[in-house]
Amino acid sequence: MIASIFYFLAFVSIFFAFMVVVSKNPVHSVLYLILTFFTIAGHYLLLNAQFLALVHIVVYAGAIMVLFLFVIMLLNLNVDKEPVNTNLMKFAGAIAGGSLMLVLIAVLSKTSIMLPAHPANTQIGLIKNLGKVLYTEYNLPFEIASILFLVAMIGAVILAKKNPHTT
């Protein structure tokens, strides 16, 4: 049962991810990307990580992709207005993507299915356990990550702020 759900979700997420690349219209690409994020949230649910699944939806589907969609809608990119991809660009893209795929296949073909060394805690994804672990065992990395976010936020504010000397 779980395995078939997994295979179905995996197929759907790869299909949507593929459609992101294939779609001609940028808005359609963004919408497919949103669907991809939803299927990934489904994968988190299968792993019993409810908190991660919902945060993934709130942050990626609910905030980041809305901003993406915003920008693309405001720019109003049309198929005829878009700069035409030359053959050189397509060639370069194919080589770059193909070599990445080659490396991934080479690496992943050598791996065997890994089993957790000690019995895995299946309840770790629930918010209570996750919070306890984050705030005790991994307190320092957690705080450092939040400082990173703060720095990024201040950077964004400074970039968006008008320079009083130039205006």
Binding site: Q50, I57, A61, G62, V66, M73, L126, K128
Partner: peptide, 25 residues
């Protein structure tokens, strides 16, 4: 009774923006 019910409500609210955005576009 979700243990993260409040968060669930937020997730749904944040997704509901797409109704307006997609319709308008």
């Amino acid at each position: 009774d979700l243990s993260i019910g409040v968060l669930y409500v937020f997730a749904v609210v944040s997704v509901s923006v797409y109704g307006i955005m997609i319709g308008g576009w």
